[in-house]
Amino acid sequence: MTESNKNLLLSLQKYSASAMLLFFILINALLTPNFFRAGTLNNVITQICPTILCSMGMTLVISTGGIDISVGSVMAMAGVITARLMTGSGLIPAVAAAVAVSVLIGCITGFMVGKLRLQAMVVTLGLMLGLRGVAQVVCSGRDIYFNKLGDVGAQLSQWGSFKIAGCIPVQIIPIFLSVLFVWIMIEKTILGRQIQAVGDSPKSSTLAGIHSVRILMIVYGISAFFAAFAGIFQAAKVSVAAGSSLGQLAELDAIAAVVIGGTPMSGGKAHVAGTIVGALIMQVITLTCVMNNIPDQYAQVFKAAIIVIAVFIQREKTK
């Protein structure tokens, strides 16, 4: 293989996710009527919000070499707790309480993974099942419809469908803030360096004086923090907090976005921009299918194929 070929291959790997996204947008430009309309963009923004939030936390978690498959259940729990508490305490305290509980659980997860050396997959699998149960217990097994919750319910529903300046969905704000937060953290702070170091080589990191337990607690805490907000925003958008279905499979979308984005599952370098592209690819596939009246099941098959292809392309990078 010649030098230029090799460079071509490297840049192909680097921009593979972006190229894929571009490819899908082009296909849509040709095939999907009405694709380039403001409505489509707004759709993307509202629908992608929970995925982006969860995948931002997931980027950090995967960068440490772990995984957090409990985010979907954390979403459900946070959404249901908010709905349950807000009639009594008002909206803000309810949100604060839901987020606080989630972060606490996240920190405990981090402690179990870091200090007790339990496998992240196993711990968060337990939480995924357990918290889903908690969510259903909190809402007594019934979906909580916000229109039955009086003023405060209406208020949260309004939040969820609020449009900035009358056109941009409010979901752009959490998307923007979470991306900015994680990007700055990874690129500019010592915590970001330490997260990636712990993921790349836990032993070396400990010997370089990094408190890996503390790092993991923070990272899983952040993951739960974003998941909690994702759950609350999602509930607000659909005006219902359903313990059984809210955030279902959200963890898989988030993991897929991170993997397509190029952050290695074994830990190490975190690719924040890649994760966003990954999330967009997943969303555009869904959208393409919806707008062309292709059943959602096909979208899932497409997504699966894309994930495998993305992992295949990334594979060469580690060599």
């Binding site: 360096r193 170091a197 790349d200 080589s201 032993k203 070396s204 010997l207 370089a208 370098k269």
Partner: peptide
Amino acid sequence: KTEGIIPHL
């Protein structure tokens, strides 16, 4: 290799 360098950084 395992207790010194952080290989991909």
